[in-house]
Design a protein around this nucleic acid. Structure first.
Lengths: 232, 232
DNA sequence: GCTGCGTTTTTGTTGCAACAAAATTGTGAA
DNA sequence: TTCACAATTTTGTTGCAACAAAAACGCAGC
């Protein structure tokens, strides 16, 4: 029992398992819209795609399924979920609670450097939007949000929020370009940056909640316009 | 095109995979306190315990780990987490947000039959407490909470809350019997039942939040009294 | 053309062996 | 006794084959 407790409190770095790499890669594809809603995933196909054997592929699919990023739709089929109105509402309610909390906590730890980082991120969002590179705008928008959430200093909470984004990601991309057409929540983001600079927790929370609600309304509307394109 | 759409909207029942059974069994053991904090889990040992091969055992461990019910503590070791003060605070903050939301939503759907069910559950809690069967009291307490949360009609939210309970479960059992000694939140539960009967969302939420905060305080205190019994 | 049924293919699950890495144990020297 | 180092055991990961179940396909009969 030597001075173990005096060593650096860092956990040893694990050598990255293939299953984890597959998981990250699939997560990325889901968020970036490579796999669209109702896309069916088979173990062997994923294994081929990612160039690994069936074991890590199965690990990744199982993990994503248990997180709700993929859903079990019948005896032998795992698919990218298609969100109906009720699921979308549920996720939004949960996001408001969790991202609201994270924003509140983040306000207490906001430093000028963080505001600068957000400003630069917002610049990227705006450029992407102007040049109609919507996927990129969505990506930077995600970074904007999580830069704030990470400031909360609550890593488990941030993870839970990530799983929620993973669930709406596919629907977001499926609704191009209607969804991202309008200036994407620029006003809310500006208010958020100001509030973070002033460490105004209530205002920051309100701005982020408004952003979530705006996105929800837009998503719901686009979804309706698309009609019930559930099958085929 | 038979009347498929007229059939019951149930998903086909999957024939229960071994991995799922292993997962449920381990979850049960964690919540019931069979596996205590800092208990190290090995694939082969779990496989022996549950009498399955390594594959389902590994599946279960992986899933529990990705949910945060187990944690990766070093290159080749997965353990039941020991919650430090910071982790306990984080989980409590998240619980307040999520369980508060679920309670609020539940209030809108409360029926007299539900209040009756809760009353009977509270009876079980009280008896168990009187007769010092603490593990049982904890179990019924869990049922009390989730009976309310399920009324929210938000199944994904309920799942997320379950993963949070899974994270504190071991610590709860580790602090016997100090933790459960006092009448366990009886007052808060009474208020909650009354609020549910009156469909008073704000009061129900407040009662449940108070219950969570009470538990948090008790847990924190018991944890401190135990000292930093981290190792051995 | 369509329906019903048997065959073939695809697919998920499971158990297992091989491998590498880490922990443990044992041994010998100082 | 204590320390260093090597051999052994334990352990997680990975790939793969066998199996059963479900799906897809095709073909014959109406």
């Amino acid at each position: 029992m030597g001075g173990n407790l005096n060593e650096a409190p860092e956990f040893e770095r694990a050598p990255e398992r293939l299953g984890d790499a597959a998981y990250r890669e699939m997560k990325e594809r889901i968020i970036r819209g490579v796999y669209r809603p109702s896309h069916k995933l088979t173990v062997r196909a994923v294994a081929r795609d990612l160039d690994v054997s069936t074991t890590p592929a199965r690990d990744a699919i199982n993990r994503l399924t248990s997180e709700g990023a993929l859903i079990y739709a019948g005896p032998k089929t795992v698919v990218v979920p298609v969100l109906d109105a009720s699921a979308l509402r549920e996720i939004t309610l949960t996001r408001l609670a969790l991202e609201g909390l994270a924003s509140e906590q983040a306000a207490q730890n906001g430093a000028p450097a963080n505001v600068e980082e957000l400003k630069s991120l917002q610049g990227l969002i705006n450029s992407a939007l102007d040049e109609k590179r919507y996927a990129e705008a969505l990506w930077h928008n995600k970074e904007f949000h999580f830069t704030i959430y990470r400031l909360s200093g609550l890593p488990q909470l941030v993870s839970m929020i990530e799983t929620l984004w993973l669930r709406i990601g596919p629907s977001l991309h499926n609704l191009y370009p209607e969804f991202a057409e309008e200036k994407y929540g620029v006003r809310n983001h500006e208010i958020a940056m100001e509030a973070l600079g002033e460490r105004d927790a209530a205002s920051l929370r309100a701005a982020m909640e408004n952003d979530i609600r705006d996105g929800y309304r837009r998503l719901k509307r686009a979804n309706l316009e698309r009609g019930a394109g559930t099958s085929a």
